[in-house]
Design a binder for these strands. Structure first.
Lengths: 214, 214
DNA sequence: ACCGTAACGGACGCACCCGTCCGTTTGGCT
DNA sequence: AGCCAAACGGACGGGTGCGTCCGTTACGGT
């Protein structure tokens, strides 16, 4: 009696799982997290039940779908902290995060949306914020980063950047890059002008909870 | 036989219409256009049917609801064009538009969302854009506005500003003001630095169509 | 005070989306 | 080749939101 080894995964199952993840990356990346599960299933060429067997809930699918983008985010943070020029690291980090968000609307949604349980993305966000806070301190010391910059300003700009993603597909990447460039210009310290410090930002810019009810 | 004059409007109907508009301003202003019609009805203390008799569709209600904000927008444009200092007019216009959008999430949605038929808001937006284009030419001549500024940059920033509105209710206004201040800093011409011109923006930043299907 | 008609609102139909059930198919081991 | 369990997917239930129908209410003119 050969005990059934649960380690053997049927090939079609494995295949479908891969196709589902590809489809999810495509669909969520293009339409954001509001895209229906059915469309992911259709795009993957499977039934809804199959999708739900592999990923018990929409949130679970989302978390798995963007694992790679999460790693890319970590790498960006690591590189930025390792950069010998704080301001250069700071601006590169902003550009890389914006590009990550622009390349996948779904990842931008997941990253910026506080959904209560799946703290994977929340952890990434916190990590990024802490890294930027550290970078900011250094870049302010070199005089290249505006002294009035506070960490909440990054949240502010990332939320704003999410609004840019509502641009039509063809314009998104260009718009995102232009926006990132303007953000960097806004954060750069002005030479000598007594530029009036902008109003204080929202203290502790906490996000609203996820629209993903399910 | 006194022919029924359809000009006489029953007092309760008139009352309800006013209450519905108030409710719509409150609900849509707070939750955006995604708020259900039922909630507007509940907030107004009427049944759904009553609401739909006064405004045959959600879009019709929206258009009527934000008539005042539209007027305020026109006034801001007019004042900006009349300002003798183009840069001052330009920055004030940005601040006023942002404040209008921050004070009513629904108006921001309606203003920025291209919904195909109700071109009321589209017209406002075009008008605003043309005004800014004119202001921009003047402000660039005075050297205060960055020469690389193009009109699509305003659309870009207004789209971004809409993302800021996803902040929690208490932080929205502060965040909006901070954002507007940063935008102005970003648009301001730098004294002498050969600041690398940001990448070209999305040509003809046309909006995606409205999520208000109904 | 009475009555006709306009206005009201609860209940309904329709469409969409999330997640589940169960009868059917199929991979892979013997 | 045959078998069995694992995987599949069409169909279903539950929930929500838009817009409509029709029996009931109440305004306001006589």
């Amino acid at each position: 009696m050969t005990a059934r080894l649960p380690h053997t995964v049927r090939s079609d199952a494995r295949d479908n799982q891969a196709r589902i993840l590809d489809a999810a990356r495509a669909v969520f990346g293009e339409e954001g997290l509001s895209a229906p599960m059915r469309e992911v299933a259709r795009h993957a060429g499977v039934g809804p039940a199959t999708l739900y067997r592999h990923f018990p809930t929409k949130r679970a699918l989302i978390v798995e779908t963007f694992a790679e983008q999460r790693r890319a985010c970590h790498a960006a943070v690591r590189d930025a902290l390792a950069d010998s020029d704080p301001w250069h690291g700071f601006t590169c980090l902003i550009e890389r995060i914006c590009e990550l968000h622009a390349n996948s609307r779904g990842f931008a949604d997941a990253f910026m949306t506080a959904f209560p349980e799946a703290m994977d993305f929340t952890a990434d966000r916190e990590r990024t914020l802490r890294a930027v806070a550290e970078l900011a301190r250094r870049a302010q010391k070199t005089g290249q980063l505006r002294p009035s910059f506070v960490i909440d300003d990054l949240m502010l700009m990332l939320m704003a950047h999410r609004g840019v993603q509502d641009a039509p597909r063809t314009a998104r990447l260009t718009a995102s890059r232009r926006f990132a460039a303007y953000v960097i210009e806004a954060f750069r310290a002005v030479p000598e002008t007594g530029a009036p410090a902008p109003l204080p930002p929202a203290p502790h810019l906490q996000l609203a909870h996820s629209p993903i009810t399910s």
